[in-house]
């Protein structure tokens, strides 16, 4: 015969409350697009190519590119503040 025992669940739910992101844009015409390059190999090249396409094909008015010193550290506060203040959309990368 097998009974039951009471144990503690060793896991923990996430403590970060879900937050809303700003709503999407109608289009990219005359918009400022920011990139945070995560400094992983080739991401700088991808950023360069996407920036060119966003300007030539989708009408973005300005591109601001910033690069992290190390991929495994968060982007510095000053970089986030600058891009938040100046951009309509920010694109970044994660992983290899």
């Amino acid at each position: 015969m097998v009974g039951t025992v009471l144990i503690f669940d060793p896991t923990a739910p996430c403590q970060n409350e879900p937050k809303h992101l700003p709503p999407t844009l109608d289009d990219l015409r005359d918009k400022v697009v920011g990139f945070i390059d995560n400094s992983k190999p080739n991401f700088d090249n991808l950023v360069e190519d996407l920036a060119e396409l966003l300007r030539s094909r989708y009408g973005a008015s300005r591109i601001i590119k910033r690069r992290k010193r190390l991929s495994s550290h968060p982007a510095p506060e000053a970089m986030i503040k600058e891009l938040s203040e100046q951009c309509d959309v920010v694109i970044t990368g994660s992983g290899d």
Binding site: C14, N16, P18, T24, T92
Partner: peptide, 23 residues
Amino acid sequence: PAAVAICSTAFAALGRAQATALG
């Protein structure tokens, strides 16, 4: 600003889980 992340296929699940964990 609006935001978009780019992940390679091997890291897409991590990207999704991490975004959720960060709120």
